[in-house]
Structure formats: structure tokens, C-alpha cells
Amino acid sequence: MIWVETLINGALLGGLYGLLGIGLALVFGVMRVVNIAHGEFMVLSAFCAVLLSNLFPQVSPLLMLIPVIALSFAVGWLYQAAIVNRVVTSPDPLSPLLLTFGVSVILRNVMVEIFGADVRSLQVGELSRASLEIAGLNIGIMPLLTLVLAALLFMALQLVLRHTEFGRIVRATADRRDIVRLSGVKPDRVYNYVMGLSLALGAIGGVLLAVRSSFTPFSGAERLLIAFEVVVLGGLGSFWGALLGGIALGMAQLIGLKIDPNAGLLYAHLLFFIMLLIRPSGLVSSRV
């Protein structure tokens, strides 16, 4: 019974991990760039939420998601327009990787200097402790809400990409950056929107993860690795795959923690590495 509960909680955590991965997958799918700074931007959004809820203690921290999402979208737009677009068409595929890695180092250390290296978390009061009793299983309300929210967001994103003109333009730009220009579309502008969207999704993941577990300015690397593993396990580009990948990682992590309380992300990393060994095909390319 305790194992069933662990598996269910792992699956619920997986919804959150799926959210971490989806933003990374979106940017990769559209512009073939792995944004190494994705994790740092998530932590930054969590710091913003903490800051805002300190300023307005009477407002529920979860409502802070709204301004944080808007802010993250704007930051993503500017980040893409000012920095990433300058190397995105570079003939050297390593340039965006190195550049975003450089940005991640800058962000991490700026956060250390501004917010300090202390451990933080986002308190949502009663909600974080509330739980449901179903058939003898103890299921947390907050993780359940997170999974539902993740599933809704995945559906919404899918709908936008499949059935709107914006989605059509994004997919066309991912296919042929030059040819969309013949339809009067500026690919750089599309990228700006996509990065904004990616960081907005990352912000949701980042803030919800900050509710679940504490964080420091150094947590970005961890979050990036999880996001990356989710995307690769999910088979790259498939959104539902990312959710499944997240669930697999979440389960691996919680099972690991049951075996060894100090394991941290070790078992999630191991699952990823073993998958690399046994299922390397399909790891390399695909599209949104």
C-alpha cells in the first residue's frame, strides 16, 4: 500500500516535472536551441513570487502566479530579442548552447548576490498540507491540483499550436525559417513570442516547485537537468511524451527517496542514464 501511494505521489510530482520540461521542449522544437538558462529563469520566477508575497502578505501566493507569468513572458521576449536571436542562425550549432550557458552563470550569480544563498520556499499555508483520503491512500491536494493544472496547460498549448494562426506560424517557422518570410512573417519575432511563452510556462513550474520544495539560487542547474531529462525521456517534441517522461522521473525520484532518504535526484538521473543506454534511438531529432 505504501508503495502504491509512493507511485501515485510520484505521478503527481511528474505533472510538475512535465511543466518544467515543456518550456524547454517548445524552444528546442521551434528554434533547435537548448536554453541552458531555463532552470535559472525558473528560479528567478520563484524569487519574484516570494518577493511579491512578502510585499502583499494578505494575498494568496498562488495568485502571485499571474504577475509572475506576465513578467516571465516579457523577460523571455527581451532575452530572445536582445541575446539569443543574435546566435540562433549561427552556422555553429554550439554557439546558442555556449551563449545560454553563459547567461545561466550570470543569472545564478546575480541571484546569489541579490537574494543571498539562503534556502527559500513559498508558503501557501493550509493548502500545502491538505490531503484527500481515497481508498486508504493519502493524496495531497496541492500535488493533485498541480497535475490537473499541468494537464490543462498541455491541452491548451496543444490547442493553440494546432488550431490557431499563431500556432500555424510557429510550426511553419520551426519547419522553414526562411520560407515563412515569404508570407510576411518575421522569424525573429516568432522566436520572441516562443521564448516568452517558454519562460511563462517555466515560471508556472518554477513557482509551483517552490511551493513543494525549498530552493536556492543554485537550484537552477537541478531544474534544468530535470527539464532536459523529461524532454529526452518523453521522446522530444511530443508534449504528452513530456508529461509521461515527467511522471516516470517523478516516480523514480520518490521510489529512490523511499529506499534512501538522502538520494535527492540520483534515481531520476539514473533512470535517464539507463534509458540513454537502452533506448538511444529517437533521442536525437524530432519536432513540435
Binding site: L97, H269, F273, L276
Partner: peptide, 12 residues
């Protein structure tokens, strides 16, 4: 693995 995938897998 290629490009960024190699880089991050090394990190993991």
C-alpha cells in the same frame, strides 16, 4: 548524442 544532448548528458 549530438550537440547539446551530449553536453547535458555529460553533466548528468
Amino acid at each position: 548524442l549530438r550537440d547539446a544532448y551530449f553536453s547535458i548528458a555529460m553533466w548528468v
